[in-house]
Design a protein around this nucleic acid. Structure first.
Lengths: 251, 251
DNA sequence: TCCTCACACTTTACATGTAACATGCGCTCA
DNA sequence: TGAGCGCATGTTACATGTAAAGTGTGAGGA
């Protein structure tokens, strides 16, 4: 491997952003958790500037929402958000699948088939976590292979937003089996170089996933969410968030 | 008018962001212009913090690009960017048109027909600036009426990015006439509540606009751009950018 | 003449100071 | 007891300080 690539020293803001993003995506900072800049600065051992910048970047990605002069909190994704996101994903990934069907590298297609095969086991054993992990990779390969960088970025941001709404997603055995079958249909269309088929298969897939979530929610009668509205309380939710960042520096 | 609506004092960062966005979109800050934080702070009469924040917001919108540790410049949109953006727009606005065909308010539809009619004159007289202004409003109405806020936001950001590439866009008399005809076809489908028709009409329209740009560029043999790569020079391009912001405050 | 290197200058990235603002709570008074 | 005021506390938003990095320039040498 070439060790002489241009070296750009990691900026603190990038490290903070990745750390916070992970914390949000794994649920350590759950929806509704406040992202207090002074608090995070204390906990991560850096000054407030890079924290503020990182938090605002998460806002622009949709993982957090800003309330003017009242701080930022991790985004709460409700059913209507979820349906919006799936409609958008259907548009974007449908086109991505179409583009892939026209020209996808053999390597990417092989990787995709690998993921598809790997999904068989968790689909039948109903290993939801594992299935979703592979599902994410499945869709990621397609949007990254379509050749449109902006499209890939948008689609991946939407996928990340959806990880905030896991509790709303369908997870029945039937759902996993149906999803896997639909993935197979998508891959078949890609292999056959059938753009129309690929696009409609992808769209149908995402539309069904969305309606499955909708069905699940209305069946379970999900509460709108937590306590929430009464002003952003000063409740600092988790107290862990690990120690400090690579560049330690509290002079 | 009700004067007792909730009042949220304008933040400096918002004023700066809007001012810079306008400066970019009208070409006062052309593609490639450096967005020097200290310089802008001096010119706008505020401190560096809100300037930096506003500049980074423009980066996240795609109107500017950040070069780590080397500052930010107004985005340069080349032909490949333009094609990417049009492919994305086709996906997003195609779905928006479909949704509109299913349920669009009478008011929105009336507004849309108004814009369509108004486009007739500039289309035949080849008033390119006026036609593009109305074109922007035409597409804006559709994405805003589709009921998907995220979709609308994305589509409008892409439309803004395209304003940085005006020089690449087709502007022949034939092109304007074709565009207007396609707009009519879209509106007809919306009136007829024909989702399929609306989506394909929109997609075809945007695909043709993209290929018209491509044709124009390859015909004219556009130079890749200005001088650009040799490091971000210290050339402060324009020296105007008006006086200072609403909240004057240089203590 | 052309290349190299050191220096001066500017900016970025991070740190820190601070006024205005927002929130929760206890206290007062009806 | 209950509504409302004022205070304590903590945060945001903006301002400013500063080390390190990046860039352009010009002197000096080949």
């Amino acid at each position: 491997m070439n060790l002489l690539q241009p070296l750009h020293s990691v900026r603190v803001v990038d490290a903070v952003r990745e750390r916070l993003r992970q914390a949000i995506l794994v649920g350590e900072l759950p929806p509704g958790a406040r992202l207090s800049v002074p608090d995070l600065a204390r906990r991560l051992g850096v000054s407030r500037s890079p924290i503020r910048e990182a938090v605002l970047q998460l806002v622009s990605e949709g993982l957090a929402v800003e309330h003017s002069r009242r701080g930022v909190e991790v985004a709460r994704i409700d059913l209507s958000d979820l349906l919006e996101i799936y409609a958008l994903r259907a548009a974007l990934e449908g086109v991505a699948a179409r583009l892939c069907a026209e020209s996808m590298s053999a390597a990417d297609l092989t990787a995709l088939r690998g993921v598809l095969d790997a999904q068989g086991a968790p689909a039948v054993s109903r290993d939801v976590a594992r299935y979703r992990e592979l599902d994410q990779r499945f869709h990621q390969i397609i949007v990254q292979s379509c050749g449109n960088l902006r499209l890939a970025k948008s689609a991946e941001q939407l996928a990340a937003e959806l990880r905030l709404a896991q509790r709303l997603l369908a997870d029945s055995a039937e759902h996993l089996r149906a999803s896997h079958t639909e993935h197979r249909r998508i891959v078949a269309a890609l292999i056959a170089h059938a753009p129309e088929e690929a696009e409609s298969a992808m769209r149908d897939h995402l539309a069904r996933v969305a309606s499955a979530a909708q069905a699940k929610v209305s069946a379970e009668g999900h509460p709108p969410s937590g306590p929430e509205p009464p002003g952003l309380s000063h409740s600092g939710l988790p107290t862990t968030l690990s120690a400090d960042l690579p560049t330690g520096g509290t002079p």
